[in-house]
C-alpha cells in the first residue's frame, strides 16, 4: 500500500494518474465508503468527514480492513496545519483525519507527499 498525501489543490489525483498504473479510482470525497475493489482510493478525507459526523473512528474502519489494503494507492488531503478550528465537529474531523494518516503512513510501504504537482517519496 502506498499513501499519497498533500495539501488542498496540489494535484494529488493528477499525480497518481500520471505516475501509476491503475484500472479504477474510487472517489470518496463525497463521503462514500472506500470500495477496496478499486486500486486507487481517493478523497479519503471526505469519508473521514462522514465518519466524524457519525462518531465512527475512521482509523478503525481501515484497521478492520487491513488485509484489503494490499497494493492499493490511498490518496488523501492533509488538513493538519493552520489554526485549530473553532467548530467542534470540524475539530473532531481534523483530529480523526490526522489519526488515520498517521496509521496509514505507518502501515504503508511507501509514502509520497505532493507539492505543486510534484511528488516526493518520504518513505
Amino acid at each position: 500500500m502506498e499513501l499519497i498525501f498533500g495539501g488542498a489543490y496540489q494535484g494529488k489525483l493528477d499525480y497518481v494518474k500520471d505516475n501509476y498504473e491503475y484500472s479504477r479510482i474510487c472517489d470518496c470525497s463525497d463521503g462514500r465508503e472506500p470500495d477496496f475493489d478499486a486500486d486507487v482510493i481517493y478523497g479519503i478525507e471526505g469519508f473521514v468527514m462522514e465518519c466524524a459526523k457519525a462518531g465512527r473512528e475512521a482509523k478503525d474502519f481501515f484497521k478492520d480492513r487491513e488485509t484489503l489494503l494490499g497494493d492499493k494507492l490511498l490518496v488523501m488531503t492533509d488538513t493538519s496545519q493552520g489554526v485549530v478550528p473553532i467548530d467542534k465537529n470540524v475539530r473532531a474531523f481534523r483530529e480523526m483525519n490526522g489519526r488515520l494518516m498517521l496509521y496509514l503512513a505507518e502501515k504503508a510501504e511507501h509514502v509520497t507527499r505532493v507539492f505543486c504537482g510534484i511528488g516526493k517519496r518520504l518513505k
Binding site: 498533500g6 495539501g7 488542498a8 489543490y9 496540489q10 494535484g11 492533509d78 488538513t79 493538519s80 496545519q81 493552520g82 489554526v83 478550528p85 467548530d87 470540524v90 481534523r94 507539492f115 505543486c116 504537482g117 510534484i118
Partner: peptide
C-alpha cells in the same frame, strides 16, 4: 505562498482564491 495544509474552512471567494493560486503554482512548477 503555501496556504494549503490547513482545514480550509473559508468563504467561497477565499476558497476560489486558494484554488487559483495553487493552479498558478502548479503551472509554474512545470
Amino acid at each position: 505562498d503555501g496556504i494549503y495544509g490547513d482545514m480550509g474552512e473559508y468563504s467561497r471567494s477565499t476558497e476560489d482564491y486558494r484554488k487559483a493560486l495553487a493552479g498558478a503554482d502548479r503551472t509554474l512548477a512545470k
